[in-house]
Design a protein around this nucleic acid. Sequence first.
DNA 1: GTTAGTTCAGTTGAAAGCAATATTATCGGCTAC
DNA 2: AGCCGATAATATTGCTTTCAACTGAACTAACGA
Length: 405
Amino acid sequence: MRLVEPNLFSKYIHQPTVFANKSLLSPHHVPAKIAHREVEIGQLTAALAPILRGYGSANVFIYGNCGTGKTICSRFVASQLVTASKKPVVRVVYINCKLKKVADTEYRLLTQILREFGETVPDTGLPTDVLYRRFVAAVDERQQTIVLILDEIDALVRKVGDEFLYNFVRLNTELQKARITILGITNDLAFRDNLDQRIKSSLGEEEVLFKPYTASQLKDILDERASEAFNTGAVEPAAINKCAALAAQEHGDARRALDLLRVAGEIADRNGEETVSEQHTDVAERRLDTDRVIETIKAQPKQTQTILFAAITSAEARPATDRWADKRLLTGDLYASYCTLCQRNNLKVLTPRRFSDLIGELDTLGIVATRIISKGRYGRMREIMLSVNGELLEKVKDYLALRLN
DNA sequence: GTTAGTTCAGTTGAAAGCAATATTATCGGCTAC
DNA sequence: AGCCGATAATATTGCTTTCAACTGAACTAACGA
């Protein structure tokens, strides 16, 4: 007679959870109603409306920081457009230009579009003008309007220049029956200024600006999502307020707000608690911050990591005072300890020139803070301070120590 | 005490080298006429 | 002849180095009161 072993996972399966439907908190979830974007949606609709009357509509540019609902709203409006269109057929092609290997060159962009139309295109080999002809052939056989949503278009323009935009605009003169409307989405507010004059005049006819959400708007959004995503009463209002407030500080990023709330819920679950409280939100914020920093550091090339590790170890080697001034490193000293660290790891030692640039990069990433100081007769150099500290610093150090010595 | 000039220790910008990838061009083999 | 895939040739990138101009306050020395 043998006792039935309880499955290892059974305790997790039956563990109570605060979530009713966690997927509603995912950034990919498209809510039935998009709150607090009525104005923007209105502008967008007005800009695209001429399509339904058969006129080729103006091209539209959408600006706004990340997490302000640009993508969701444009997809929403585009889908409405498709359902509303009867006679002049409207087709929407959504392409995220930032995805590596998918649409980060003109060729790949075209390939991607052609595939949407069921054309088979080789990954490489054809000249781009052939692709343009294929596109014209595929599209022009009937009366239709193509709405081309180019998300993160700034990334593509930065990479391959703005020529391709001109090509697309020019296509309209070549097409007999079909029309193309470009809907460019970017979070670079200065994007338009950097475009070629020619393109600017033919492209930027309509602009919609997405402002960051305010804390109270974020709160509304969270309230609405939370009511369905969580079990009733499982989230304390204070927790939601905190999430909204924190995300509002970060340029009103709704994605951030939802992430905070989701992670807070996960933490509550793990602790076996029945409600999500403000404390959970605080922990969630730290978690997300830590993850973000660790992720960016992981993504850095080995040389940059080495420099950072050198900075951490030499900052620790300083006499144990709490004064900030004593944690400062100077370029020369750091370069020296970087050199020894490289030798110990059999890494190539970069020149001071490159070293200087990499320090600058760590600065822009917000991992160290630097400023240039002049010590008069004793030269001019950068003063470097670590921006991470405490628990996070330990984690970073541990990670780097695994890869280096 | 002021002023003009030096000096140091890197910082910064431009240009060029180099290796890894990505694109193009070319070529031989294969199939269908 | 036309198409295909493989391979060679060429271009593009991303990362670095080299070279050289630049920086700005501490330090020095000369100046004038």
